[in-house]
């Protein structure tokens, strides 16, 4: 018979009771600390809110405590997310004078994914000011951070980053194609020039996505590049070309469509149907 070590059970029970007591205490303390902390932060925020309006009006002469200034910086960066035009420029200019960009960029190099993510998220409305850094983060080792980087390209309207964004759907540190597509649409580039050479990229998936998005964005000056996709060896690229040609709806595309090789495939017949559609208008 195995004897239980004398006193072991009592010790364990006592230990359990202590742990339970500590947990319960932790819950209560956490709640009380949080309530107090939120109350103070809320007050602070209300106090600095009018100052955001001053910044928007161009009046940046105020003297604040360190904590209040930090709260104002945070509020200003959040506000920059839902305004645009002169309002956003006013905020980003002020934030730059506060070393905001520098702080964020430094944090974006942190070894912790969460820190990088939060810094990136705060910096997002101003991301167009630091395209190289954002481009690097498209290749971050954490997939969540990569996705956030893609989204910030969209949010900040950094259409110039469209090529690296499109190329990021491939490779060991890929970003889901859907997120990339959403970002490109959000950035809404207005000219095909922004797409660079992704429209002739050797990687079929990248090329197909570029052609697809050019169509969704209705980029009329991309018509030629889209039509060139019909000559591709990849069915994915050709299908994207057909879709985009349909979206652009230009009768000038008929010539390219009629150059397609004659064979009895669904692709050929949909091209024919498209020809009719474009001619009828």
């Amino acid at each position: 018979m195995i004897q239980t070590i004398p006193g072991l059970s009592s010790a364990l029970l006592l230990a359990a009771a202590v742990v339970c007591g500590l947990l319960a205490l932790a819950v209560v303390i956490r709640r009380m600390v949080r309530t107090e902390f939120s109350r103070r932060e809320e007050l602070r925020r209300s106090r600095v809110r009018p100052l955001v309006l001053d910044i928007l009006d161009g009046d940046t002469s105020f003297d604040l405590s360190r904590r209040d200034l930090a709260a104002l910086v945070l509020l200003a960066s959040e506000t920059a997310g839902y305004v645009r035009g002169d309002d956003r420029s006013a905020l980003t200019s002020w934030l730059t004078t506060q070393q905001f960009a520098r702080t964020c960029l430094k944090k974006m190099k942190s070894p912790f994914a969460l820190t990088r993510a939060r810094a990136l998220s705060r910096f997002a409305p101003m991301a167009h000011l630091a395209p190289r850094s954002i481009e690097q983060m498209l290749n971050d080792r954490d997939e969540g951070v990569r996705s956030l980087a893609a989204q910030s390209v969209g949010l900040s309207g950094s259409a110039a980053l469209t090529p690296p964004l499109l190329r990021s759907i491939e490779g060991p540190r890929a970003i889901p194609a859907r997120i990339v597509s959403m970002a490109v649409l959000r950035a809404s580039p207005t000219s095909i020039a922004v797409f660079g050479d992704t429209l002739v990229d050797p990687n079929h998936r990248v090329r197909a996505l570029a052609i697809d998005l050019a169509g969704q964005l209705n980029l009329v000056d991309g018509r030629k590049a889209i039509e060139d996709g019909l000559d591709s060896a990849s069915s994915e690229v050709r299908a994207a070309s057909l879709r985009s040609i349909q979206r652009l709806g230009s009768p000038l595309s008929v010539a390219a469509l009629e150059r397609m090789p004659l064979n009895n495939t669904p692709e050929f017949w949909s091209a024919q149907a498209l020809v009719r559609e474009l001619l009828v208008g």
Binding site: T4, L8, S9, L12, L13, A16, C20, L23, A24, V27
Partner: peptide, 26 residues
């Protein structure tokens, strides 16, 4: 003592789980 040991692993640990869950929620 043996009974208490059984009590510890069943009820005691279970209580710790519940309290930990409440802490996580809080």
């Amino acid at each position: 003592q043996l009974f208490m040991l059984a009590f510890f692993v069943s009820v005691g640990l279970s209580l710790i789980s519940s309290l930990a869950s409440v802490l996580i929620e809080e």
